[in-house]
Design a binder for these strands. Structure first.
Lengths: 209, 209, 209, 209
DNA sequence: CATGAATGAGGCTTCATTCAT
DNA sequence: GATGAATGAAGCCTCATTCAT
């Protein structure tokens, strides 16, 4: 009996935790940080406010985890691509494509991780998350530059630019819902092309330089 | 005399209005939306809270105007560059350079306009502002594509990517204050190069396509 | 006009502050710390909860000031007696009498300063307050011992005992309200006698030693 | 067998009850009333929160019993001394010494019984407990006065003063932990001397009377 | 009987907005 | 017109108590 209860409980605990995270993620995606008050998250998760605090120490903690969790899977997948086979260009293209496609399909990850969180603690976590994303692209860039695929460039700046580029391009289309698949595919392709071109050697350098 | 008083009044009203906007802009730039409470704005502007409501119907209205005003000058300058002489590439480079340089120098415009404003009404204004910025780059892109400088591409996506790219690249460096001039110049250059390359014809297309 | 408003305001500010302190003191005296919630204090003071925070940073701050203010006047008067003329015995008697008389008459000071405050910050202030009271008696004791009026003794212990003795003796009678003047006078006298005897040379030392 | 099970049960019930009381006493002694939440008590006792409510109707009930139990042993020992042989002075000295010594040694009894308990029901019990303590000293005083050892005095006031005196003198030293035995012995002696002198005939009465 | 997850009322604090002076 | 004191709704968090398992 003790075993069964323990098993049941653990399952339930995990389930509750997931439900809270999912509820928070939904609310943030829909209405941003402002709409995701503890009471609203609890209601969305179908439980009392007190329950939230059994799983998360504070509102800030919850939001940090929402962001971290949302991005953790992304990082895993992106790293898989980054460390996989293929040219640097192909991998960069694939990485951007992978992220943008899921962002447009699944729950609104992009928005969650862009959101200005207002709580200082969350801000800190947010910066770290963005840096982690940037690092994936930086790794690809490094190999590409070493291998002669990409010209020499400030890898930190380029990585940040890549993250910013596809993020911004996603935020617009995401906010107003209801996109057709055709448009999405075109958008994803455009973003990927943009990012790959941005780090590649152009035929003739810009007139300015 | 009635006329003169009216003139004085108007001047004073304008002055007050400007002072409020400037105060709000400063506070947002320093501590984000959270730090810019009405009482703080009033104190920073050297007037009472009641005065704020003589010029702005609500906090949201004030912030919309802060953002609009902050970006209005940018749009003016960017449009001047966009409509000026030179190749599309040169103008694109100059436009990005102009924005990023001011963002890194003056009061923190970039942050103000990136900031997730939390008030739904401000969000709407924020999206509009970003679209306006994007339109400037779209215009340059259009001419560049027509003129054969740039390859065919989704101009909306590219414009959004440009805005996102330099915005993201700025947010990181801006948050941790204290940059040396040398670093700033290098950063600006890197961002500009990134954006120009991103919309230009690469020597050989990405392996994926 | 500015002057008049300023004067009016200052008066009002002071009045509000006093009203809050008085309200908190009343509630603490009646029902202890538990009954003195911010909402209750605000209601008792005839204002909104928000007003409290215009004058006190937090609940703990308010309570510290209630205690400090309650005891400040006491310390002043006690010090006057301690530093005044007369034998050490007479001054000790007068000091204890002065405190106990006011405690029995006016607002319930003794209870306020004994109360276990539950907030760590208040606890710290409470210990300091008790030490300050003890210091007054310690000063008298020191002179009395030097002058040969009192036998050698641990002055810290004796001072603490004095404070504890009259405090405890007051708390009991105070809780059940409605004492006759005659009883009060007798009680005050008994307490004073107790304290003076306690630090004086007995005819024959206790059998134990 | 029914009998044996019942016996086991009773033993277990008693054991649980004791464990709860001991846990609550420990927590109160360490961190005061605030730290002794039901969940914490349950954890300290190694059982569930629900179990607490099998033995105590409410938190207040539990705390009343903690206090009562903590003081019951004291009263027993004090009464033994009070009703034992020896002069009134010697017995008074021994009674105060007995209490203070245990207070300084064992779990923090003094603190527990001084603590302002915040729950009205506990307050009432606390006053009763203090009165019971006072009664022990009152009994000794009565015999001492009748026997000519002590001068005539308000026995209620003196008894309360005694309780207050050693209580207060203990609270200070207890809070900052880590006393050396030597200091403790000196402190105990000082307190006992103070209390005995306080009810004894001084060589020359205070100047005031 | 025993557990501890779950509840939800209640407390503290903040801040946009109003209005008497 | 100008002030800033005053309001009070609303948000976060705690914890005594209950009840399904």
């Amino acid at each position: 009996m003790a075993y069964r209860r323990s098993a049941l409980m653990e399952e339930r605990l995990a389930s509750n935790r997931e439900r809270i995270l999912a509820a928070a993620r939904r609310l943030i995606a829909e209405g941003g940080y402002r709409e995701a008050q503890i009471a609203a998250v609890a209601a969305e998760a179908g439980m009392s406010t007190g329950m939230i605090y059994r799983y998360f120490r504070s509102k800030a903690d919850l939001f940090i985890e929402v962001m971290t969790a949302a991005i953790a899977r992304e990082l895993e997948l992106l790293n898989e691509i980054a460390e996989g086979p293929g040219t640097a260009k192909a991998r960069l293209y694939a990485a951007v494509e992978s992220f943008t496609r899921r962002a447009l399909t699944g729950p609104n990850l992009a928005y969650a991780f862009i959101a200005e969180p207002a709580e200082p603690e969350v801000d800190i976590a947010r910066i770290r998350v963005r840096q982690q994303l940037g690092n994936v692209f930086k790794a690809i860039l490094k190999e590409g530059i070493t291998g002669g695929e990409f010209p020499a460039q400030d890898m930190d700046a380029s990585a940040a630019c890549i993250v910013g580029a596809y993020t911004e391009a996603l935020v617009g289309p995401i906010a107003p819902k209801g996109q057709r698949v055709k448009d999405q595919e075109r958008l994803i392709q455009s973003i990927c092309d943009f990012c790959v071109r941005a780090v590649s050697q152009p035929i003739n350098p810009s007139g300015k330089r």
